[in-house]
Design a protein around this nucleic acid. Structure first.
Length: 130
RNA sequence: CCAGACGGCUGGGCGAUCGCGCCUCCUUCGGGAGGGGAGGAAAGUCCGGGCUCCACCACGACAUGGCGGCGGGUAACGCCCGCCGGGGGUGACCCCAGGGACAGUGCCACAGAAAGCAAACCGCCUCCGGGUUCGCCCGGCGGUAAGGGUGAAAGGGUGCGGUAAGAGCGCACCGCGGACCUGGCAACAGGGACGGCACGGCAAACCCCGCCAGGAGCAAGACCGAAUAGGGACCUCGCGCCCGCGCAAGCGGGCAGGGCUGUCGUAGGCCUGGGAGGUCCGGGUAGGUCGCGAGAACCGUCCCGCGAGGGGCGGUCCAGAGGAAUGAUCGUCGCACCGGUCUCGACCGGUGGCACAGAACCCGGCUUACAGGCCGUCUGGUUUC
């Protein structure tokens, strides 16, 4: 059933990111995820990645984006909702966090942001790994 | 073997499974196959160029900024090489903004009498006058710069002679200036008649001299080009009344009408005297394409040169993104660290250990960052033969 798999696209322009920034977010471990219901009829899932200069230089930022991109490639097809935009923001531990823990962070954050869960209250930030 | 100096290289290896962007080919348009995909600094953006557009389109002058031993290399440089001079080191070697102070102006703190025309604070000495306890003391006209003291620096230094005391006053050596000679393309080096010491330092103070520089930058710039709004031309429909010109189309003027004059009424002034639809044209925004990688290229080799480098021949094609690919995970080996065993050199186990760091138009440099490892040349010391 190929029609059940929604296409995943990349977000590229600044207005898209700004729109997502006003949406509910959830911080888990080394990442923060913002989810926005675009409220249009297109079933596509869109993803964007952000790593600010606060976490390091170009090497660290690129590494964080690559790991988030790989994690999104593995996790999103099962947990993302069609018609939504997701923005993954790297926190300090994103380049060095163990890979399986990083996958757990993404899964957990996506489940918290699922539209079924009432109360979009932000979960308290889990303490970073020791 | 130890310590050190200099130059160069490297920047984890192999494999498996997924994946990314680019190019070529195939395709049943779902995709598939193949190729190639970060650095020595890609960094800082500090110099020099290429390439674009703008300006002047010739050159010069001025201003501003930079550079500054000499010769060479180079497209060019503030870079590099060789040499010279000065300084440091036992040495290999390292360091130096290293033009001009008789073109001019200015400054030299503190201390000191005096800091640039030379002078004289404490002193020293002849002579004159006075005093005297006969050691000398006081005052004056002069001579002098040896000694003292200050300073970063006090108008050559040491010694001998000389003198009333002194003084390049004379002499020797050293230092300084130096016509000229020799060597060198030159910076400069060696010698040096003679001069008898006259000429202090600061140009990273202004300045002078010589040389070099127009400005902005790939978000440069070129091409294609929607939608919407606005501009122009043409066509169709519409266009109250009066006057003038005209056969007509139409043009001009006036009035009505509309707008503005904060609002309403009245009066006045100014502007306009109109609209709708369609087709086409040009400018131009979003967006797209180019610029965008075969070159001051890389590899090998030969020749020239001490070297930087230059030349010949042969071969190779080697990243081109645009919220930005070049990755993720695992295994194994290597290295490091920790723990244990022990036949002291290995073995076993563990590690959330393995440098600095990511192309963005492209080259040549400089500077800065960098775990570990490798190679070469040389110096000093030590041991053995």
């Amino acid at each position: 059933m190929p029609d059940a798999i929604s296409p995943i696209e990349r977000m590229k322009t600044r207005p898209e990111f700004l729109a997502a920034a006003r949406s509910p977010s959830c911080a888990r471990g080394a990442i923060v995820i913002q989810a926005r219901n675009r409220a249009d009829d297109l079933p596509v899932i869109r993803v964007g990645f952000t790593a600010t200069r606060k976490i390091g230089g170009a090497v660290v930022r690129n590494r964080a984006k690559r790991r988030m991109r790989e994690a999104a490639r593995q996790i999103l097809p099962g947990l993302a909702k069609p018609g939504y935009d997701y923005v993954l923001i790297a926190r300090g531990g994103a380049p060095t966090r163990p890979w399986l823990r990083l996958l757990d962070d993404v899964k957990s954050a996506l489940l918290s942001l699922a539209p079924d869960s009432d109360l979009p209250s932000r979960a308290p930030d889990r303490a970073p790994a020791p």
